[in-house]
């Protein structure tokens, strides 16, 4: 027996096998907590120091691919976002037009601004509706910002809008606070002015100006703008009224064309506030130099050519002040 044992242990490989088997058996027989502690400590000591940089390298390699995919996705999302923004703006404008449409009993045709006349001073627009949609020249065009203008021409699928910035378009306007009447026109290089306002009229900066409806072309109540400045002219014949227009052509994308229906009733000229005492302009104020933003005073002969200025409490002029070319 002893010789057999000696023979076995003389063979190194058998000895190593026995030692390894013993070690394996000991490992198998260890308590679970010891196994856990041994395994964790060996992994943390022997493998973890290199596993972390390797994981970072793998993450770096994966992030390159991910970055490429995300960039591609970002470009798609940007395009989609721009499209959605455009749709949202269009949706908002159409909602406002719907509100406007329900305000009056007009027959309205919605149209989209398809073009503006080329040029620096190009106040006229082209819309995508025409005679095929029931539009006719002379129809009034409005938007959420107020009066846009009127149709100067209509083709089958397109119409041309003469906006309030056109030098040939004049609109009878009324001050909603004091009921002072005047004619609004746009002078190139001078901006929009309210003409034919009598001296001592109660027009103050900030007053709202709407279409009066007395011209017979534009209905009453369409927003035109606000009074920017009001000063007597140097000749003391009338008041120079500078107007800040409510219409911004750059923000105009959809319009409504009034194709028919009942216009709102004309405003009463017997406004109560016209009897209220109004502040007279002082001499010092009249003699003050005009700011550059104020439009230049009109010559008296231009007023006489169109029938003269309408006083605040006078009946509307018999001839239409809203004249086109």
């Amino acid at each position: 027996m002893r010789s057999l044992t000696r023979k076995v242990w003389q063979r190194t490989d058998v000895a190593v096998l026995a030692a390894c088997l013993t070690a394996g058996a000991v490992l198998l027989a260890l308590p679970a907590s010891w196994k856990e502690a041994l395994g964790r400590s060996v992994v943390a000591t022997v493998f973890a120091p290199l596993e972390k940089p390797l994981a970072q390298l793998r993450s770096l390699a994966a992030s390159r691919t991910e970055n490429k995919a995300l960039r591609q996705e970002l470009s798609w999302v940007s395009l989609e976002n721009a499209s959605l923004r455009q749709a949202a703006a269009e949706n908002s404008a159409l909602r406002e037009l719907l509100v406007l449409k329900g305000r009056w009993q007009w027959s309205l045709a919605a149209a989209e601004v398809s073009a503006r006349q080329p040029g620096i001073f190009a106040p006229d627009l082209v819309v995508d509706k025409g005679t095929a949609d029931g539009l006719r020249p002379g129809m009034v065009v409005i938007s959420t910002m107020g009066l846009v203008g009127r149709l100067s021409g209509a083709e089958g699928r397109a119409s041309f809008v003469q906006t309030v910035f056109h030098p040939d378009l004049r609109v009878s306007a009324i001050d909603t606070r004091s009921r002072v009447l005047g004619i609004i026109k746009h002078q190139a290089g001078k901006g929009m002015v309210m003409d034919r306002v009598p001296l001592h009229s109660d027009v103050r900066p900030g007053d709202t100006l709407v279409s009066s409806g007395y011209g017979g072309v534009m209905p009453y109540g369409l927003m035109l703008g606000t009074v920017e400045a009001a000063r007597p002219d140097p000749l003391k014949l009338r008041v120079d009224v500078g107007v800040r227009p409510s219409l911004d052509l750059n923000r105009l994308s959809q319009v409504l064309v009034i194709t028919g229906g009942a216009p709102p009733p004309l405003p009463s000229l017997a406004a109560p506030d016209t009897l209220a005492p109004k502040p007279r302009p002082k001499r010092s104020a009249a003699a003050a130099p005009r700011p550059d933003s104020l439009p230049a005073p009109e010559l008296p002969d231009s007023a006489s050519q169109t029938g003269g200025a309408a006083p605040a409490t006078s009946p509307p002029p018999p001839s239409s002040p809203e004249a086109g070319p």
Binding site: D13, C20, V26, L27, G39
Partner: peptide
Amino acid sequence: GTARGTAFGALAGFLADCYHPATMG
């Protein structure tokens, strides 16, 4: 040879066991 191969196998097996302590051995 056998002896070194066996020892090497046991060592590598033990290191692999450390990742799975529940079945260590």
